[in-house]
Design a protein around this nucleic acid. Structure first.
Lengths: 244, 244
DNA sequence: CGATTGTTTGAGGAATATCAATATGTGTGG
DNA sequence: CCACACATATTGATATTCCTCAAACAATCG
């Protein structure tokens, strides 16, 4: 599982996830200056928040173990889950604009994080253009991810949505050199349903249909992908809208 | 109409839309340096692209007249419209991360733009921290907007979606000191439908229903809002999901 | 003015939500 | 370590929303 993989050393320079994280693209000297500022190995229990929507930006967090969800809450209390994040992902970039968090980040299982105090990072930013570029790049990636999600919610059927999220998780496993054919679903079904704009029962049924077609094998905690082509077909055009 | 309003002078320092645009928050000296770099008053015809997904970032564009849509295209050619933009809005920020446009910007009607060549802006960025902050802020706002849209697509019924987009457009009129109760719908219904993840027929029916309830008056080109409370109620919880 | 494009309206059907019941898992205290 | 209570997941039956297809209507452009 992504969750239980312990791929991380104390310091960035020895961290197996550095290529996904903030240090990527920095030289060893710059990494040294960065890692002197971070507080590694903070453990977070399932259900606890790293930060809450509206909080002033105090720190970024690099996930070293476990999984998190981010969500925004409407004025009416309507919740929309924006994304799921796993070891190697960086949380808190959402607050870069006005130094206030625009979403809430909650652990979906026990895990550990590195804390990167914002003051210190901000200082480093003025000194290290490469770090500034890296941060910009990560922020830009966040925008791209949200756009993909908009496309998923706007244009795809329930089968297309489920196929898409499975392939997305799978690809993120591959980026971590983990088995991409076994996709853990550590979040609750309600969270997944909320993220995909559908209901838990529908998720259940779609997974059931995929399983009976031999596309995958589904249990409560994970999905094993068998027929990649079929799944990609569902994710691609598995929609009521090939036209318009 | 937003579209036909000609609120703009040649230069930023005299531009009625400066408070929405890049110059906001800069002092007069900084604005002078910025406006010396821009090419104002470029006219764009309906249907033409300012930039295309995949293009290297050459310039930002400030809309001075008219309206634009941005869209991303899937590998399968699936199109999702990401947003609509009007006079005072800045286009091209999507490319800040890797200096490549992630979406296509198309004029939905004839209009004019100011061109801000990226090289020049990039130079200014190293010299003007306030401009850097401003750009960051605008990028962050783009993220927030997309998150709202995710909530709309993920959680709201068709009536909720239509109500939401009308109130959004209305609010943007208010920010420009225009009559916020008369919302022009200059884009085609298909574009609006695509943006909202629904079909043109459904848009039509929802507007019809709203009209017959006295909430608004709808013509092909614009909507006049009468009952704000009702519309807000639809936009807020006008959804199949108050729970979960 | 005709051709084309865009919008509205109607009837029917498919996808997915809702409600209800069952089954499976998970944690806690004895 | 077991048993019970509670949370979560699946399955089934029904209802509703929204899409699909078809046609009429209105606007726009040459």
């Amino acid at each position: 599982m992504i969750a239980s993989a312990r791929l991380v050393q104390q310091a960035c320079s020895q961290c197996a996830l550095a290529h996904l994280c903030l240090p990527y693209g920095l030289d060893s000297d710059e990494i040294a200056r960065l890692e002197s500022q971070i507080i590694p190995d903070i453990s977070i229990k399932a259900g606890h928040d790293l930060f809450v929507q509206g909080d002033p930006l105090a720190a970024f967090y690099a996930i070293t173990e476990g999984g998190f969800k981010t969500a925004v809450f409407d004025t009416d209390g309507l919740e929309q889950i924006m994304g799921f994040y796993f070891a190697g992902d960086l949380l808190g970039l959402d607050a870069l604009g006005d130094e206030t968090h625009r979403c809430t980040a909650t652990a979906i299982e026990n895990g550990t994080v590195c804390r990167l105090p914002f003051d210190q990072i901000d200082n480093l930013l003025t000194q290290l253009p490469s770090l500034r570029r890296r941060l910009m790049r990560l922020m830009s990636r966040a925008l791209t991810d949200e756009e993909h999600q908009l496309l998923t919610l706007g244009r795809k059927s329930s089968e297309g949505r489920v196929a898409t999220v499975l392939l997305d998780f799978s690809q993120r496993l591959a980026m971590r050199n983990l088995d991409s054919s076994i996709v853990p679903l550590n979040m609750k079904r309600t969270d997944l349903a909320n993220y995909l704009g559908m209901r838990v029962e529908t998720i259940s049924r779609v997974l059931g249909r995929f399983q009976s077609k031999g596309i995958l094998n589904s249990t409560r905690k994970e999905v094993e992908i068998h027929d990649w082509l079929a799944l990609r077909a569902y994710a691609g055009s598995g929609a009521w809208v090939a036209d318009q």
